[in-house]
């Protein structure tokens, strides 16, 4: 039996909604098959008010053993470092987060907001939001760079806007069943099992990427979304095309450019007209190359690929 507590800070509840849609395993499976005892969760907990507070206090005192502390949403520091803009159970949420993190064996940050601040932490960041151990790419966050939970692991970051439900439940199962030692984390403390490959890995448009044929308008099923419509699939670490959404699709499969939501810089653009859903270029060359590719190599590859492209690459081959 592993006790799990889930709290929300500066959040839209999107990750809770995602979590409740998990299938492999489902949220129910966590309880019935993997022995996770959900002490409290904002959308599932039955307790209200002082009863919730009592659970939190018992976790901090050790009266209830806290195995896994899950946090969704940003840690809000405003105003003036007090955190008063996000109060919960009679005190700033940031204080609960700090004490519960120190009391827990494992701390898991779910979604971009909890991992690195996400959308709320974008300039001018009026709520002084930050993630648990990162603010965007900078280490530190609310708990500090050196923080480790009782298990010795730092915060396990599962980013995404939202995170895929099965990333969440599979990591929770690994931790709850004593397999946390099997987890290896990347430089942003993301489990490598999910975040070593790219969104592009498994994308059905890869052949169009290879032959440099672009999707030039939404609704086209031919072409690659990277060249013109701002897709960040080639430089975003996520398994979105390996572990499909709703078991059947992904953004790029549905014709929607990847927004890079598992990376610390998300959202990437200044949201000014002409910058969203448009590949940013300098003198006609993409500003952000596919990871590991330099400009000279990219230009050479383009010339070779266009020259070698077969006729079918220019057609819509996904005919109903």
């Amino acid at each position: 039996m592993a006790n799990l507590l889930w709290l929300q800070g500066g959040a839209c509840s999107g990750n809770t909604m995602s979590f409740l849609n998990a299938e492999e395993p489902s949220a129910c499976d966590l309880v019935t098959d993997f022995g996770i005892n959900v002490l409290w969760q904002p959308s599932l907990g039955l307790e209200l008010g002082d009863d919730v507070k009592a659970i939190l206090e018992k976790c901090i005192s050790g009266e209830i053993k806290l195995d896994i502390f899950v946090f969704e949403g940003t840690v809000i520091d405003a105003p003036n470092g007090t955190g008063e803009w996000n109060r919960f159970c009679g005190r700033p949420m940031k204080e609960w987060v700090k004490e519960l993190s120190e009391a827990s064996d494992f701390v898991v940050a779910i979604g971009d907001c909890a991992t690195w601040g996400g959308i709320p932490a974008n300039a001018p960041n009026p709520t002084d939001s930050k993630g648990l151990q990162f603010l965007k790419r900078a280490k530190g966050g609310a708990l500090g760079e050196g923080f480790t939970a009782k298990s010795g692991l730092p915060v396990i970051n599962i980013p995404g806007c939202p995170a895929h439900p099965d990333w969440v439940t599979q990591i929770l199962v690994a931790v709850a069943t004593g397999r946390a030692d099997d987890l290896t984390l990347d430089e942003f403390q993301r489990p490598k099992t999910f975040f070593s490959s790219f969104t592009q890995t498994g994308c059905t448009r890869n052949m169009h990427f290879a032959y440099k044929v672009s999707t030039t308008a939404f609704g086209q099923r031919k072409g690659c979304l990277f060249y013109d419509l701002g897709c960040r699939g080639p430089m975003t670490h996520s398994p979105c095309n390996r572990i499909l959404w709703n078991r059947q699709s992904s953004k790029t499969r549905a014709g929607m450019p990847c927004l890079g939501c598992t990376e610390p810089e998300f959202p990437f653009f200044d949201l000014a007209p002409g910058t969203v859903f448009k590949t940013q270029t300098v003198m006609g060359v993409p500003k952000d190359m596919p990871t590991g590719v330099d400009k000279k190599g990219y230009v050479k590859l383009t010339a070779a690929a266009k020259g070698a492209a077969p006729a079918w690459a220019e057609e819509d081959i996904f005919v109903v």
Binding site: V213, K306, G307, E314
Partner: peptide
């Protein structure tokens, strides 16, 4: 020939 918008066969 190298432009993203160009369909070389058509």
């Amino acid at each position: 020939q190298e432009c993203m918008y160009y369909l070389v066969h058509r």
